[in-house]
Simulated assay, not measured.
Amino acid sequence: MNWRDHLQACLLEMQPASVCALDAVARQLACSVLPDTPVRMHGNPPDSSCALALGIDALNGLDAQQAQHLISRTRLYVAPRILLVVPSGCVLDEAMFRALGFTLSATDAAADLRIHYYDLDTYKTVPDWLNARYWANPERWEP
């Protein structure tokens, strides 16, 4: 499956309530795959949040600091879920995407592209120690 087919399948599976396109190519793809979903372009400053941010050419021409800044602002202010198409020559490598909380969704060797996905809900699994069993029991405290 090529990267475009994978993105279309992801968008159809997610069915986001709204999409923020980080570039013109992403807007065109989102509008064609999800015709009934509102799609807006990424503005500066962001005016409202969306369910998903989609970027295809968003990281092209950016240095590492600018790319990290775009990703961080998008996560914080625009959308809790991000789909990014990343060329192999991107300034951010696999380790950097992992450090930013992304997972590798697909790789298209023919086009030399990778698709990275970020979801705030599944970003970090809850550790075993973080449950009621290890917390103090206030009903057992005596004044």
Score class of each variant (00 low, 15 high):
residue 132 A to Y: 02
residue 50 C to S: 15
residue 51 A to H: 12
residue 125 T to K: 03
residue 45 P to W: 04
residue 61 G to K: 08
residue 4 R to P: 12
residue 55 G to L: 00
residue 129 W to K: 12
residue 2 N to F: 13
residue 71 I to N: 09
residue 76 L to I: 02
residue 66 Q to L: 01
residue 119 D to A: 15
residue 42 H to F: 06
residue 132 A to F: 00
residue 34 L to V: 02
residue 93 D to N: 05
residue 48 S to V: 06
residue 10 C to A: 14
residue 22 L to G: 12
residue 44 N to G: 12
residue 27 R to N: 14
residue 41 M to R: 07
residue 137 N to G: 06
residue 67 A to F: 03
residue 126 V to K: 15
residue 83 L to K: 06
residue 34 L to P: 06
residue 42 H to P: 04
residue 140 R to K: 09
residue 58 A to E: 01
residue 6 H to R: 14
residue 105 S to E: 04
residue 26 A to N: 13
residue 120 L to H: 09
residue 68 Q to W: 13
residue 19 V to Y: 01
residue 70 L to R: 03
residue 39 V to Y: 01
residue 61 G to L: 05
residue 29 L to F: 03
residue 124 K to Q: 01
residue 68 Q to C: 06
residue 113 L to W: 11
residue 106 A to M: 10
residue 115 I to N: 15
residue 23 D to H: 00
residue 87 P to H: 09
residue 105 S to H: 12
residue 78 V to K: 13
residue 29 L to C: 05
residue 14 M to L: 08
residue 87 P to A: 10
residue 142 E to I: 10
residue 138 P to C: 04
residue 56 I to H: 13
residue 64 A to H: 14
residue 84 L to I: 10
residue 67 A to E: 01
residue 125 T to H: 02
residue 134 Y to A: 11
residue 5 D to A: 04
residue 87 P to F: 07
residue 142 E to G: 07
residue 128 D to T: 10
residue 117 Y to S: 10
residue 8 Q to I: 03
residue 26 A to Q: 14
residue 87 P to Y: 05
residue 11 L to T: 06
residue 67 A to S: 10
residue 141 W to V: 07
residue 15 Q to A: 12
residue 100 L to M: 10
residue 48 S to T: 13
residue 64 A to E: 15
residue 55 G to E: 02
residue 50 C to T: 07
residue 33 V to G: 02
residue 14 M to W: 02
residue 92 L to P: 08
residue 60 N to F: 01
residue 21 A to N: 13
residue 9 A to D: 03
residue 17 A to P: 03
residue 139 E to V: 06
residue 97 F to S: 10
residue 80 P to R: 11
residue 58 A to L: 01
residue 23 D to A: 03
residue 47 D to N: 10
residue 121 D to L: 11
residue 79 A to C: 14
residue 60 N to C: 11
residue 51 A to W: 01
residue 28 Q to Y: 00
residue 131 N to R: 08
residue 140 R to G: 15
residue 141 W to S: 04
residue 35 P to C: 09
residue 120 L to E: 07
residue 89 G to Y: 08
residue 64 A to M: 09
residue 131 N to F: 06
residue 77 Y to P: 15
residue 66 Q to D: 08
residue 119 D to V: 13
residue 26 A to Y: 13
residue 57 D to M: 00
residue 92 L to Y: 04
residue 143 P to D: 11
residue 133 R to K: 00
residue 79 A to H: 04
residue 79 A to E: 07
residue 52 L to P: 07
residue 44 N to S: 11
residue 55 G to V: 01
residue 61 G to W: 01
residue 125 T to A: 05
residue 11 L to D: 07
residue 61 G to F: 03
residue 76 L to G: 11
residue 63 D to C: 12
residue 50 C to H: 15
residue 137 N to S: 11
residue 58 A to Y: 01
residue 142 E to C: 11
residue 125 T to Y: 00
